[in-house]
Nucleic acid binder design. Structure first.
Lengths: 334, 334
DNA sequence: TAAGGATATCATAACGATTACCTAGTCACC
DNA sequence: GGTGACTAGGTAATCGTTATGATATCCTTA
């Protein structure tokens, strides 16, 4: 069986209390005995039993990383970038627990004893119920990706509205007037932010907002494909389309090509996210880069320090997006 | 504070032992008391403390999902499909712990007390050291994606060799003679399997294997792009290229387009994986579908039953790949 | 009716750590 | 040389469960 502190105590001829203290670098222990104990521990390959530790310390050594949903509306790139970001910060002494909120019908298993802290990559306002529960349980939480009103919660977001605004502006400045938007999952905050930014760009440049140029999608390629199909069926199809994420943009392109049309010659397309393949699409996709991995890293870091010392200091960090011009937009020479 | 079985015991006027038994549906408890206790538990919102439970049960309620690496050579789609697959099987009472093997310099923190079982999505032979450690610790393990020799370990793989063979065969039957391959990360078993299958197809059809038609890559788009560049620089470029995964195929296409050439008119391309965007690429990518999500689901299910009753019954499950013909291959009429 | 056997429950000891509180030794100082 | 302070370490309680061996009650049955 795996050695415990008692085994070490016997070998070192001290009490297990001393061993515990020595291993935790308590000042109550003489340097020489501390060293001896550390040596023995290493020799027998001692590893602390985290369950016992957790039980008495009332800590779990577990960080929960939650998504609104793992199965729906979460693209692979988004998902894995998030995990990569968090993973790179959290060290191996922590368990990283990953789940979708929609895996739960009720939240009773989410409580303080089980999670030292929670990172929520939030996409929907429906998550508020979850957030409320977590806060009520007194679990430190950091909410990423979606702005929430409660200013006592650490909140890290990307400035999607501005990003979408820039995308719209870019199209307008390229001479486009008939610009459509393909939107994301209904109910997702990001969907709304991007729509708002886009529309503001239109309004600021005195371009009428046409209802039939606003198409709903759900962030996956197929939905982009279908939405673009409908746009192209219009009597007067748009000359440019802003897609609320890259996946839908890829789907939209597909639809354009299938009708024998060209991107950007016949239709210009802008995406959002700068996911891995946007550079390698043909033509490469003009898009808005959203720093998911950065946001996740930041979030994890903040959470860790929040766990260490629970100071509430009203944090809302907004990380700017970056417009990336590539080949999918045509400049209209009017 | 959260209620414990002792609190419930007081309320129910029984000993905490009885409560524990009642909650675990022990036959030693009368139905009527069991019901009463269950009611009270529900009323006070009792949730078991898993740390205490784990401590005495010597179980962790944690499943480890390990990758060869999370940062390198693991594409987003692969990564997230795996997690999705596992996630859909493992229920919420378990913790799902996700890490890359290369996050560890030594494995002492990986032991029985911490993991009830481990799922390894293995890509490299270098993982054997890890597997050995896990086995030695007596932790139930299921290895996915890469065949291992030790037949006492449950092993679920996709038949990559055959898949690659079919890809090669398809190209040959379409009339191609000058066929190149862009390979995956060196040292990954999948790289080798796909190469072997591909080469076998060539040999079986009496097509000479040319050294300069074998290019190394590392499974990412950029490497596919670069490798294709080199192929096109050859005096006699290939008319078809088999890319060891879809990401590289996308990169390769990009390279073709940049030179003003067309896929499939000038160069035919086949990928591997059937990742999300292969259908939406332009042209859509002919590829070999590898059922990652199925493999992961299967793996998780097997692990769960292995944990329940540790019977070693020599399991090697090979899930077939599926060839998917789309638009990126041209039929040569010779 | 007393012994024997179920049946239902209880008291207590684990599990492996941390920690509040105590104790033995040493030294300094009056 | 006795008192107090300090040092280094030990004793025992504790965290919330489950497991083990009593124990009390009731029902059979000879």
């Amino acid at each position: 069986m795996a050695p415990t502190i008692k085994d070490i105590a016997k070998l070192a001829n001290v009490s297990h209390t001393t061993v515990s203290r020595a291993l935790n670098n308590s000042p109550l222990i003489k340097e020489v005995t501390r060293k001896k104990i550390a040596e023995i521990a290493a020799q027998v390959g001692y590893v602390p039993n985290y369950n016992a530790k957790s039980l008495v310390m009332q800590r779990s050594y577990t960080i929960g990383l939650f998504f609104t949903s793992i199965a729906n509306g979460t693209t692979s790139g988004f998902f894995s970038d998030t995990i990569r970001g968090v993973n790179s910060v959290i060290d191996v002494e922590y368990n990283l627990f990953i789940r979708g909120i929609d895996d739960y019908t009720e939240y009773s298993s989410i409580h303080r004893k089980r999670f030292d802290g929670i990172i929520l990559m939030s996409q929907s306002e429906a998550d508020n119920k979850f957030i409320y529960h977590v806060v009520q349980q007194g679990i430190p939480i950091v909410v990423l990706n979606r702005q929430i009103d409660d200013r006592s919660i650490i909140n890290i977001i990307s400035n999607d509205r501005e990003g979408a605004y820039n995308a719209g502006k870019h199209l307008i400045e390229a001479g486009h007037q008939d610009i459509a938007i393909i939107e994301g999952v209904e109910g997702f905050k990001s969907t709304q932010e991007r729509r708002d930014g886009f529309i503001k760009a239109l309004i600021d440049h005195n371009i009428p907002v046409r209802n039939d140029y606003m198409r709903s999608g759900n962030y996956d390629m197929q939905s982009g494909y279908e939405a673009m199909g409908k746009l192209l069926d219009l009597e007067k199809p748009p000359t440019a389309v802003f897609c609320s994420n890259d996946d839908m943009a890829i789907g939209a392109m597909k639809s354009v090509f299938e009708r024998g049309l060209q991107v950007p010659n016949d239709v210009s397309i802008v995406g959002f996210d700068d996911s891995g393949f946007s550079l390698f699409a043909n033509p490469s996709l003009t898009t808005v880069k959203r720093p998911i991995e950065k946001i996740s890293e930041q979030g994890a870091r903040r959470l860790l320090s929040l766990i260490k010392e629970p100071i509430e200091n009203d944090v809302l960090i907004s990380i700017d997006t970056e417009f990336i011009a590539r080949e999918s937009v045509r400049k209209l020479s009017k």
